[in-house]
């Protein structure tokens, strides 16, 4: 039992990441509103950012700035830097997705996926009948 608890607590950051990731994916799957889907996607991506950042953390390490002390323990800066790039990508994705949502709203008058699907399937059925 103790083992299990240690297992869970020692890797609590990964559990957080997994929970966040599942929440994000679940929202993307279950919500019909396009904006909510984008939010879900954001949560999903955030979990990955957390994953990278916590991965680079070294217990007791400080920020990776040269202090002159040779015994100083640093956190690994590379994952942090990488995730900066990923965040930029994430922002770009979100903004593009939001822009698309706006355009969809303009073109269809709705951003509810079930309504969009009804409209599109009607259009397909009409094409099939011509």
């Amino acid at each position: 039992m103790d083992d299990l608890i240690t297992q869970i607590t020692a890797h609590y950051n990964y559990w957080m990441v997994i929970i966040l990731m599942m929440i994000g994916l679940y929202i993307t799957i279950s919500r019909g509103n396009l904006i909510k889907k984008i939010v879900g996607l954001n949560i999903f991506q955030t979990s990955v950012f957390m994953f990278y950042i916590s991965m680079g953390k070294v217990t007791g390490g400080t920020a990776p700035i040269l202090t002159g002390n040779p015994d100083e323990v640093y956190s690994n800066p590379l994952p942090h830097v990488l995730i900066l790039t990923a965040i930029v990508v994430g922002i770009a994705t979100t903004s593009l997705a939001l822009a698309l949502a706006v355009r969809i709203r303009e073109a269809y008058g709705t951003i509810e996926e079930d309504e969009l699907l009804t409209i599109e399937r009607d259009a397909e059925a009409a094409e099939d009948k011509i």
Binding site: T28, L34, L41, L96, L100, A101, R103, A107, Y108, E120
Partner: peptide, 9 residues
């Protein structure tokens, strides 16, 4: 538009 949105997700 919806195709691009789905593709994006």
């Amino acid at each position: 538009l919806t195709a691009a949105y789905n593709y994006l997700i």
